[in-house]
Nucleic acid binder design. Sequence first.
DNA 1: TCTGGGGTCCTAGGACCC
DNA 2: TCTGGGGTCCTAGGACCC
Length: 402
Amino acid sequence: MKRIIMHIDVNNAFLSWTAVDLLSKGYKVDIRKIEAVIGGDESKRHGIVLAKSPVAKKRGVKTAETLMSARRKCHNLKIFPPNFKLYKMMSNAVFSIIRKYSPDIEIISIDECFLDYTNVYKMYGDPIKFAYHLKDEIYNTLKFTVNIGIANNKLCAKMASDFKKPNRVHTLFEYEVIDKIYPLPIGDLYGIGKSSSAKLIELGINTIGDLANADEQVLRKTFKNQTSYIINKARGIDNSPVNTEEEERKCISNSTTFSYNLTNTVTIYKNLQALVENVCRSLRSEKKYALVVSVTIRDKQFHTYSKQRKLENATDNPDEIFKEIKKLFDSVWDEEPIRLLGVGLSQLTNERKRQLSLFEQSEEVEQISELDKVIDKLKEQYGSSIIQKASLVDNNVKKKYE
DNA sequence: TCTGGGGTCCTAGGACCC
DNA sequence: TCTGGGGTCCTAGGACCC
């Protein structure tokens, strides 16, 4: 028997969620119905579009474009700041409605998930009727709309939910693939971005159908061993299972774009240290240890480069990680003014796997870790400003005078 | 003109070993 | 003077997604 998979996607999630929040606070305008976007603070150089209203979209506003450019397209554009705490709450609310019907869901981002309907088919019946019911229940309960795509695999369910928006249910069953997606431009295929579509168009492949019928040997020169994978995607073939288990995190990172470019090493180190503290907090909350640490630098020309190093032993110790980060930074920075700094941890393990040297006391290592855990607890209860390492108590962190 | 932040996965080249 | 081939690990960077 064929699987039945649904993909549930909140329409313009950040903007819808902010709209609902504003209306609940007495705001008179539904920002979904005007030229509006959710965007960062331009004075902090975070000035890009995170989400757009359908009206703004009609005027050509695209996600991730600059607010400056969006304003040129919409002369009455209203810009609202993001509220990630609110978004997390809204996200949890929608997933818990879906989870009432089946535990077989895979959450793939803050605003979308897959539901494997196969096992509950007998219980709830016709998937299309069910999808309409679910969509309406979400709207009636939470006051925002979703799109639902129904198909025989995840890829097609995802493609289907991306058809006409908002507030729609679409199907893309195996027998509908040729009619419904073969005519679409190649860039509409999930996983084919700007770079790959440019290469494909160069090869005369303009639609998903062109790719589905392409000569594998010809594509192999460009796409190597990804070739049959992307051709299968164009044909709507995807056997990946709905992954109910929460995936273990594979990396943790934190980065900041500064209001002003940094050149002063004292300020740079303080910011690197703050980034290290952040990633280490996440690391400890996951009860993991990192084997690889990396630093990323973006300079004022927007050139981005990085350096990483594998450690002898996995660690969650911020001082140890900061020492490495500082070394990596010193070895790679070319003294160009810095726009962004990032710190990353990867190859995460569940054990410290630490081979103690002869003179190292195991209790000492434990104590450091225990102290950090206590600090985390305090921060959790009283907010992150309650306690800071002495070296971080300095207003200069993230406030630049350069 | 201006361009966020957090992820995952893949490739390519060099080092190193047998 | 001419110089194998695999295999694995590490690092840098790019592509793609939301």
